[in-house]
């Protein structure tokens, strides 16, 4: 009885996977043909509609993600010792931004703030300041990581890496008498680095094509049941 139920479930899963794989193949193929066709052709217009649908779907997915984030943090609120306080900070920050936005939209600010938009100022203070500070702090970690790299083990690849870092950094210095270093930096960026970057980008492109074809053929498990 149980074995029978398992077999039926497995068959249902296989059918679901086949339907999903067929849909992915059809949608991917129509999109590809549409993107390669003239914009005013039937397939071109279909691809355009598909892209708009995916854009809206992605926006809904973002909302679902934000909702999930807030629900997870709401669930953590009672556990003060396990980061419940930080979850409260997340929820209060999100609610504050939403409330300010609603007040901006409804033009509810009174006094001297009448007609003013507080939301963009808040964005400038919190988002821009915090992101700039975090990005600025990365400088210390990058320099420290280079130091650790050489302390850990000295190999020829580490030496080449360090030489490239130093040449680019020294070549950037706007000092008199460093014209030679700047020329070396320019040559390095225009020839060997350009060649390496080109090879890497072509490799990424080939990898994208390989994964894309595997997805279209249903070989990837992203949307399949186990």
């Amino acid at each position: 009885m149980q074995a029978d139920r398992k077999t039926r479930k497995r068959r249902r899963l296989r059918l679901g996977n086949a339907v999903n794989a067929t849909l992915v193949l059809a949608l991917g193929f129509i999109t590809m043909v549409g993107l390669l066709s003239p914009a005013d052709s039937m397939t071109g217009l279909t691809a355009d509609v598909f892209l708009q649908l995916v854009g809206v779907l992605a926006a809904v997915a973002v909302l679902v993600g934000v909702l999930n984030l807030l629900l997870v943090h709401l669930g953590r609120l009672p556990r003060v010792r396990k980061g419940g306080f930080y979850s409260l900070v997340v929820i209060l920050s999100a609610v504050a931004v939403a409330v300010v936005h609603v007040l901006d939209r409804s033009k509810s600010w009174g006094g001297d703030l009448e007609g003013q938009k507080v939301g963009p100022r808040l964005f400038g203070v919190i988002q821009v300041t915090l992101e700039s500070a975090l990005a600025g702090m990365v400088f210390f970690f990058l320099v420290y990581a280079t130091y650790r790299l050489m302390r850990h083990r000295v190999t020829w690849a580490n030496l080449v890496f360090l030489a490239a870092v130093l040449i680019v950094l020294i070549g950037w210095l706007p000092l008199k008498g460093l014209d030679g270093a700047q020329d070396v930096r320019d040559w390095l960026m225009e020839v060997p680095v350009s060649a390496g970057a080109r090879g890497l980008l072509i490799g990424i492109g080939l990898g994208t094509v390989t994964v894309g074809v595997r997805v279209l053929l249903g070989r990837e498990r992203a949307y399949r049941e186990p």
Binding site: G28, F29, T31, L35, G212
Partner: peptide, 12 residues
């Protein structure tokens, strides 16, 4: 499935 199918077409 919609996002992956159309996204794959665009990526390819």
């Amino acid at each position: 499935v919609f996002m992956i199918g159309i996204g794959t077409g665009v990526a390819l």
